[in-house]
């Protein structure tokens, strides 16, 4: 079942255009939304909830258009933009009390469960929390109203590797229980660990939206010396750039094999770095 469907989302700014963005998120899947800084990830996520107004395009949550079902849809989703950075001098308990009043589905038992799971003390204020704990508190709020879809804008930015890994474990466990997760990141190793599918945005346009394994399977990574680089190779290589000893690039599997050079499976980081060089 599609929990989120975006069709032809377009938004023009003076110096940037979000161009015909389309992708879907299925129930129980983790969709990684990747792209470099300024590619349009946050703008897309904000447009989903009408924080910014798209010039055109259709957005459906649970098969319903957002514009006519804003209240119902917001009850069923959780939007987490980084860590809690609002009312940083108020106790978490006070923020929770107010927030919970807005949700018809609020589950106090679940809230205490997640607060305990994340080792959060609700007598503290957001200002007293580390970056990771701030994200976890926002997640606890989203999960306590049984959000069926979590939209997370760079939730792992600024977290140490251990905290990032903890958070990814939580995402995997939630997805197994049927929660869908759309999260944007530029830390591609996070997606290698947990994403089912990825949507790759570059300069406001979607470059790919497919199974992670399918996407990774399209490219091979190559490292070679200057002597090995021929003019016919240059035409086929993607994102050719100087490396420590020679050059590095990626190529489609077919092209990579035609070069007769050693090639390796490419990870997301390698693919993204070289695609962005094009």
């Amino acid at each position: 079942m599609e929990v989120l469907s975006i069709k032809g989302l377009t938004k023009h700014y003076e110096k940037f255009t979000l161009n015909n963005v389309s992708f879907t998120v299925q129930q129980g899947e983790i969709m990684g939304f990747i792209g470099r800084n300024g590619a349009g990830k946050t703008t897309t996520l904000k447009a989903l909830l009408n924080f910014v107004h798209p010039d055109s395009g259709e957005i459906f949550f649970f098969g319903k258009p957002f514009s006519q079902n804003e209240y119902d849809i917001k009850q069923r989703i959780g939007f987490v933009s980084g860590g809690v950075d609002y009312y940083t001098r108020k106790k978490l308990r006070s923020i929770t009390k107010i927030t919970s009043a807005f949700y018809t589905n609020w589950d106090e038992t679940a809230y205490h469960k997640y607060m305990e799971m994340f080792s959060l003390d609700d007598t503290k204020t957001p200002a007293q929390l580390s970056a990771g704990m701030k994200v976890k508190y926002n997640l606890a709020l989203a999960l306590s109203h049984h959000a069926e879809l979590l939209i997370l804008d760079e939730p792992t930015s600024g977290l140490d590797p251990v905290s990032r890994d903890d958070l990814l474990d939580v995402f995997i466990a939630l997805a197994k229980e049927g929660t869908s997760i759309l999260f944007s990141t530029h830390i591609t190793s996070d997606l290698d660990k947990c994403a089912d599918r990825i949507t790759y945005i570059r300069n406001g346009s979607i470059l790919a939206s497919e199974e992670l394994a399918t996407f990774l399977g399209k490219y091979r990574s190559l490292v070679f010396s200057e002597d090995q680089l021929t003019s016919s190779m240059r035409e086929k290589l993607i994102g050719l750039k100087p490396a420590k000893h020679g050059y590095s690039a990626i190529a489609t599997i077919k092209d990579a094999e035609s070069f007769g050079l050693e090639n390796l499976p490419a990870d997301l980081d390698t693919i993204m770095v070289h695609l962005e060089k094009e």
Binding site: L49, Y71, K74, Y87, F102
Partner: peptide, 15 residues
């Protein structure tokens, strides 16, 4: 300073 609007718009309410 407390990002009140950023907090409020994520709540299930219309603008």
């Amino acid at each position: 300073e407390n990002h009140d609007l950023e907090y409020s718009i994520t709540l299930p309410v219309r603008k």
